[in-house]
Write a protein that binds this DNA or RNA. Structure first.
Length: 713
DNA sequence: GAGCACTGC
């Protein structure tokens, strides 16, 4: 490698080094025989044939856009090309992925290809899992992790090149990184940036980097024949069942992948399919399932497999051997409503890009067929080209705070690929201000700096400070960790939902769901001390607690404890679970730190039991809550979500006396009397009707013949 | 007249 000149290498030089008996990255070691076998197949990849061309482009530009479909080998090969070219720089090459699993598996693959132990020259870094060392020169990492590194080093000074992979997905983190890298390149001329994306959405990104060079690679995929319905149907579940039946009875072997929007649909379709086809292996797949149950899809089966999945199978989990894809054309999408501070989820049509991606899942190993349960016209006229970027869909308070802590003050005029909606931005600023993290001028405060360093939502810092006063800081940290896991700790598997509810009773606190959660977490931790590993699984199973989620809670909690060590050292815990005051102190702390998320009994209306104080929005309490009967006057809530019906989730009863001295309640915000009828007529959409029908289990399934499928494309 | 997904720090 010593012979290679920084940013002046040729493909010939690099390939000569790759061909040599000794490993160029580890001069004293010889290549294994497996290495040469792999090298042989790598050289046949479309991208490898154009290495010199790529290097020419790379040498001439600071920013390079690489577009190419799956199967081009760009994710594993391009970083290696760059690694050789940047070797002499002495700095690292970073390659980001939007997901943890992709990060670790692609790093493992690349380390094998370069014939080095994972964690040495090639490593990865994701939250809670690092495989890197001083010798690491090529580092795969999640986009979120690079972003958090950037918060203390906005010049990316330890890297000579940053590669953002899957940029077309436009995750919030990737978008932020693109903005930060664009600025960093003007400050650091030696920093190279490579944006890798699928071909479909590249125009927007190209417009964002006007001077960037482009490099396009063709992919190697098998053709997929597309069939559309000639007439659309609201009964997508039954339609799907009909198509599965047709494929299973009439078509040659090959596994089936069916995309449905919700886990409820999936469980229903699975049970009907299992009932009617004993010679078909039917497997549900969605992210809330345990790892073990997700692994079922990879198991060998003597029968044809039919995997019924949500979006997870679109990007996160790839399954080989799929020949038939059935696409309902629907998905669940979360959208944040800044005006109501409410997150909503709705079933909506997917994008053309998603439809293409879903169809592509049929052609991974050989030519396949995709059945789309919508008409060609629907696809062409109703589907948007690609999913909206994440930055337009969510709440942005933590991202604004991050940019402020990095020293970018006028975030409103910040140069993004897509600037966030002004209302979301203003709401974020307003929230940060009311939490005391920015001052009247919009400058970050000392508390704001601490909050930005937390790995949970910044709003939790106020709960920690309040907890410190009331002697329940540890409990607040536990609650912050529980709120940050991706799955609830209380497991409610569909077939045993009500059994689970009964099992959860042993943890229930009648006045607070937060305390119920703490009870469950603490019971789990004491079980961890006394039971062995195998027994703990059984213990969680019996208690209907999600072990994966609890494990994650403990890891997040420990991370928070490390970040907040000084604060904890200065805090005396005066509360213990057997204290009479324990519950009261926790509820009081929650009340005083989440006062802007409180709701009051809605005496005027009988349709929604509560209304939020801040927004005056009527809502019910989620049926999972112990407080759902509405026997408490004042509550604070953790989440306000709507999937049609607005629900307050994870609620705690509070005493209004705890709130009265807060600034927030000294003005007109405090309702003296609650009047008014909040009963609102709701309009039923066609999707609602569709759902209703599919939820009724009927025996007369639509037979495939009646569907009248016609050939498309 | 409704207990809907998926990522990341």
């Amino acid at each position: 490698m010593e012979a290679l000149l920084h940013n002046q290498t040729t493909a010939e030089q690099a390939e000569a080094l790759e061909n040599s008996r000794a490993n160029p990255l580890r001069a004293h070691e010889l290549h294994s025989s497996n290495y040469f076998q792999l090298l042989n197949s790598r050289r046949k990849l479309p991208v490898s044939l154009r290495r010199q061309e790529f290097l020419d482009v790379y040498h001439d530009s600071q920013i390079i856009l690489v577009s190419g479909e799956t199967g081009s080998g760009k994710t594993t090969q391009i970083p290696q090309f760059i690694l050789f070219d940047e070797w002499a720089s002495g700095k690292k090459v970073a390659c980001t992925q939007p997901r943890r699993l992709a990060t670790t598996s692609v790093a493992t693959r690349t380390a094998t290809e370069l014939d080095v132990p994972l964690g040495e020259e090639v490593g990865y870094s994701v939250r809670f899992d690092k495989m890197t060392s001083e010798t690491t020169r090529l580092k795969y990492m999640t986009d979120g992790l690079l972003l958090s590194e950037a918060s203390s080093d906005r010049d990316f000074s330890s890297y000579s090149c940053v590669i953002l992979d899957e940029a077309h997905e436009r995750t919030l983190n990737t978008d932020l990184l693109m903005a930060l890298l664009k600025m960093a390149t003007s400050r650091r001329p030696s920093l190279k940036v490579v944006i890798m994306s699928a071909t479909l959405n590249i125009d927007k990104i190209r417009g964002y980097f006007p001077g960037a060079a482009t490099f396009e690679i063709s992919g190697k995929v098998h053709p997929v024949q597309i069939h559309y319905l000639s007439q659309s149907t609201p009964r997508y579940c039954y339609c799907a069942i009909g198509v599965v039946k047709h494929i299973h009875k009439m078509m040659p072997e090959g596994d089936i992948l069916l995309f449905l929007p919700t886990s409820g649909d999936i469980e229903m379709v699975c049970s009907i399919l299992r009932h009617h086809h004993k010679d078909l292996t039917v497997i549900p797949l969605y992210s809330a399932l345990s790892r073990a149950r997700q692994q079922e899809i990879f198991k060998e089966s003597i029968f044809r497999k039919c995997i019924v999945a949500t979006n997870v199978a679109e990007t996160s989990i790839t399954i080989d051997g799929i020949v038939y894809v059935i696409d309902s054309g629907l998905e669940i999408r979360p959208v944040y409503n800044p005006r109501l501070r409410m997150s909503t989820v709705l079933t909506s049509p997917i994008s053309k890009a998603s439809a293409k991606q879903r169809a592509g899942r049929a052609g991974r190993t050989r030519p396949g067929i995709c059945f789309r349960l919508y008409t060609e016209e629907t696809h062409n006229t109703c589907f948007i080209p690609s999913a909206p970027p994440g930055i337009l869909e969510g709440e942005l308070a933590s991202q604004i705070l991050l940019l402020k802590v990095m020293g970018f003050d006028s975030v409103g005029t910040f140069d993004f690929v897509d600037p966030p909606h002004p209302e979301v931005y203003l709401r974020g600023l307003q929230d940060l201000h009311s939490m005391g993290y920015i001052d009247d001028k919009g400058t970050i405060t000392p508390n704001g700096r601490v909050a930005a360093r937390l790995s949970v939502h910044p709003k939790w810092l106020n709960a920690f400070l309040e907890g410190q006063k009331n002697g329940c800081l540890r409990e607040m940290i536990d609650l912050a960790a529980i709120a940050s896991t991706q799955h609830p700790i209380f497991s409610r598997p569909p077939p045993a939902r009500f059994v689970a509810d009964i099992a959860h009773q042993r943890f229930a606190c009648p006045s607070s769901d937060h305390i119920s959660q703490l009870n469950a977490l603490h019971a789990y931790e004491s079980a961890m001390k006394t039971e062995n590993r195998l027994r703990i699984n059984q213990w969680c199973f019996d208690a209907f607690l999600d072990r994966r989620a609890l494990g994650e809670v403990v890891r997040i909690r420990d991370q928070l404890v490390t970040t907040l060590q000084t604060m904890l050292n200065n805090t005396k815990e005066i509360c213990a679970p057997d204290d009479v005051e324990y519950d009261t102190q926790i509820r009081k702390t929650l009340a005083r730190s989440f006062f802007y998320q409180c709701a009051i009994k809605n005496s005027g209306g009988n349709y929604y039991l509560y209304k939020t104080v801040h927004e005056g929005q009527p809502a019910g309490i989620h049926p999972e809550s112990a407080l759902c009967w509405g026997n408490k006057e004042w509550i604070v809530y953790s989440e306000f979500v709507s999937s049609g019906t607005p629900y307050l989730q994870t609620v705690t009863a509070v005493d209004p006396a705890w709130l009265i001295d807060l600034d927030f309640f000294q003005d007109e915000n405090l309702p003296k009397t609650v009047t008014g009828d909040f009963k609102q007529p709701r309009v039923k959409t066609s999707l609602d009707k569709a759902r209703e029908k599919t939820n009724k289990v009927e025996e007369d399934l639509i037979s495939f013949e009646k569907l009248d499928l016609k050939d498309g494309e």
